[in-house]
Amino acid sequence: MNDNLVIAGREFSSRLFIGTGKFPSNEVMRQAILASGSQMVTTALKRLNTEDSGSENILDFIPKECVLLPNTSGVRNAEEAIFAAKMNRAALGTEWLKLEIHPDPKYLLPDTRETLKATEELVKLGFKVLPYVQADPVACKQLEEMGAATVMPLASPIGTNKGIKNEEMLRIIIEQSNIPVVIDAGIGAPSHAAYAMELGADACLINTAIAIAGDPVKMAEAFAFSIKAGRMAYLSGLGCVSNLAVATSPLTAFLEEEQNSIDNA
């Protein structure tokens, strides 16, 4: 059965998206992306150092079959986000965009008002907008109505590796959404990602947990397995949770019956 994820008309057989920050080297990043099987990879923007423009070209380390998902990290409001989006489009020739507006440097939490404002405008400008957003079911529906390609609610703050701290809100978002739900930020272990997929998330975007692992390449592969496992479990239909024990063996008390028949012999 084809279980490909479709975002803005593009099919993805992998439901693991990779962020490219914090890797020990570009070569390790490249190997981790390959090991993960990911087909969607984020990039960021930085001001060119005009006195030393000779650093490595990130595109040399991202497999050609990956969709590039440039982000707007560093912007503080909708106006700056739109400028960053246009710069990304000019630099990379892509309309895919991870919209992230987090003016607060302490927790890097997305600014909902500015994210909504920017999404509305960027959709009109032809961008495929994948907004990083609070796990706010109302905001997620509003983004969907505006034409966002996905919603990308956080599980916990960026880079914390704390896992899913807002499960009930994510459940509501997943239940209500007519566009893919990508869990972005805070996923710290393959078990977290598997759980997100079991909840019915459509994909996970992982960066820190892979990039800072002792062996990022092996960890990328571990995440690929966990996301596949979680997805399969979701499709299979998980069993009900019960407070009382429910036997998995027949309760016929056969030892007692056997003892009785010996006594009667």
């Binding site: 490219t20 920050g21 990039t43 930085k46 990379l92 990039a211």
Partner: peptide, 10 residues
Amino acid sequence: ITIIRATCGG
């Protein structure tokens, strides 16, 4: 004039 380049980031 602002000049940017694509770089690593999540």
